[in-house]
Design a protein around this nucleic acid. Structure first.
Lengths: 375, 375
DNA sequence: GTGAAAGCGCTAACAC
DNA sequence: GTGTTAGCGCTTTCAC
């Protein structure tokens, strides 16, 4: 039903190649002919078939963007920035959600491979080696993770975590817990390392709780563990978990920031709307999206794949791949406050010693009962 | 660089058509040959080029999903449901965000047209006639809107709004305001109509404020107008606006639900996390996503476009297009309560009469000063 | 400035 | 069961 280039050629009495040129190199065709062709095309509702065009030019003018969980408010600003940047360069972005599933991730890259000029892999759950393998199939830019030899854009969450811990130390906190993220997350690893170093440097006890689902539910589920850990301050892998934790804490009768301070990471829009407003590490999300598109397109402009003329991108070209790390910034709002004077995380602590059916009476906990102390 | 079907044919010593069959109709090829071909393919890292395949079969096994604003938490459940439904039928979903921009919407449909087997148009801002025109280019299923002659899946927000209003009437509210949505939104129109009828039937005064941006910011910006309107209850176009309004109301010293009751529409996850928890009309979002995919694929299975064998979908086939409307449900939580005994929306109302610099002292407002009374 | 011809990677009759 | 042939809709040399 849809009109093809041949229909237009027939209608306007020219050869199909003239029609083709009218759309892809208008200056090469006589203005008069061009006008006639355009009129016929309009009339017939003709639109060049981008897929067919891509088959021969090797360029689809599409970018794939693979996202672990589209429901996480962390991503939309990144997606929108990528889209607008792509749009400016006459590209379209196709987003795909993988539900945090590495299998779906891989499958999606394959599905997208030939329909896009490159894919942005955001917070992948898959292995480094898998990513490297896929990068031979389609140009890749990795976001929120570092993979040797591949272009990556990351955010300096290490620095962010450090700032957060120093902020908490400055408020007098000496028992700090970290709610870690998903297993295998590069970001979670960075946060844990930096936060651990900073906490110990400040003479604080540092507990790691996790790995966890990076969601509200994941955060809320940890309230009891946090209570037992006796921590007076918590750094969460992301804002969603932080917000969930605050909810959960509330349910077990602990208040933020009076009893325990909570800081998140990401600075999603929601963090300004909760009560208390969340202290958090702002990550430059939109910038990451823009940068990733730029890196992909810069690469991609060098040589189209499979074109008759140009050679493919060789591994030598790849050497120039940049790894960009964007700065983060601590935003202090209302979920952090001075540590309770007694150094405990609740008014009259009912100390729960891990183990079945053993409840100790109120009393000051010793370091040994303070929870899992991690490296 | 990527291996083609020809490379595999050469490596395994068979004709390309045998390679093709190995992938698209394995049962037609000798198990022994098949094994050899598969081995070579594996070795060379060969993957069938889906775009090239689509060119001849007329089926891409992709579905496009166009979303007005991916940052709105209303959409992710719909997107995820669509994805999982599509996946089960061996389809992939490409999501595109249009930033509530009708131009971008149209452009995106064109861009997607030949790379997908159909597109799901979710909350389109464009005109009915434009939608009809586009539907001749690619099979369309419209979500959250009714367009004559096209398959649509909508949610019964009319019924939802009615329930909400009846709930408020039952609580004694007699001055009710509606925060409407974007101009041209089908959903907003439905809500307005149903809410207006129900409110007047209950003997309440009904004020419409808007149109508005359907976001937190949009809601927060209306706090002052709501205060002035003297409404004791508000129905918002969606949860985001309701939550923003509660924030904004708080900033001008009004409390929910003591001073004013607020009900949203959508029941996004966030609504359970705010304080107070939001009373809202739950829309069957995931079901909408699933249904839309089913409708598209059912249609699409009938006849592939452009295939050599099959005829295209004729307008006669289209006659069978269903229009599905999904049920909604009122969820009562903490943002609604009995109307203030004095029927005013704040403790000691400082009545602000519209107009510059005119402030009246405290006193019972008359109906005439109650705000814009809409039809 | 325009037409002819080849071909992108693949599938689908049709022979054999 | 496999090879041959034609061709999906388009771009791109190369002649003229």
């Amino acid at each position: 039903m849809p009109a093809t280039i041949r229909d237009v050629a027939r209608a306007s009495g020219v050869h199909i190649s003239t029609v083709s040129r009218t759309f892809s190199a208008p200056h090469l065709v006589n203005p008069e002919t061009r006008g006639r062709v355009l009129a016929c095309a309009e009339e017939l509702g003709y639109r060049p078939n981008r897929a067919a065009r891509a088959l021969i030019t090797g360029r689809t003018h599409n970018i794939g963007l693979i996202i672990a969980d589209i429901a996480n408010p962390f991503f939309p600003p990144l997606i929108k920035a990528a889209e607008s940047q792509a749009r400016q360069r006459d590209y379209h972005v196709f987003v795909a959600d993988t539900n945090e599933d590495p299998i779906a991730e891989e499958e999606l890259v394959h599905a997208l491979a030939k329909q896009v000029d490159g894919v942005l892999l955001c917070s992948p759950r898959m292995s480094n080696s898998m990513i490297e393998q896929l990068s031979r199939e389609v140009p890749l830019v990795v976001i929120n993770r570092q993979v040797a030899g591949l272009p990556c854009v990351t955010m300096d969450v290490g620095q962010g975590a450090r700032s957060a811990i120093e902020h908490l130390l400055g408020l007098g906190h000496r028992r700090i817990a970290l709610l870690s993220g998903p297993r295998g997350s590069w970001t979670s690893r960075e946060i844990r390392r930096a936060a651990g170093v900073a906490a110990r440097a400040g003479g604080a006890e540092f507990t790691v709780l996790g790995p966890n689902q990076p969601t509200e539910t994941g955060g809320a589920a940890l309230a009891e563990q946090v209570r037992r850990s006796e921590a007076t301050a918590v750094l969460a892998y992301n804002d969603l978990m932080a917000i969930g934790l605050i909810e959960g804490l509330d349910a077990v009768g602990m208040h933020v920031p009076q009893d325990v301070s909570v800081v998140g990471i990401d600075d999603i829009a929601l963090s300004r709307l909760t009560r208390p407003k969340l202290t958090t590490v702002a990550t430059p999300n939109a910038a990451a999206g823009r940068t990733a598109v730029d890196m992909l397109l810069q690469h991609d402009t060098v040589a189209a794949r499979g074109s008759r003329g140009g050679r493919g991108v060789t591994s030598d070209d790849r050497r120039t791949t940049a790894q960009v790390m964007l700065q983060t910034e601590l935003v202090i709002r209302d979920s952090t406050a001075a540590a309770p004077a007694d150094g405990r995380n609740r008014p009259d602590a009912e100390l729960v010693v891990p183990g079945p059916h053993r409840l100790a009476g109120p009393g000051r906990p010793t370091a040994a009962t303070g929870g899992v102390v991690a490296s």
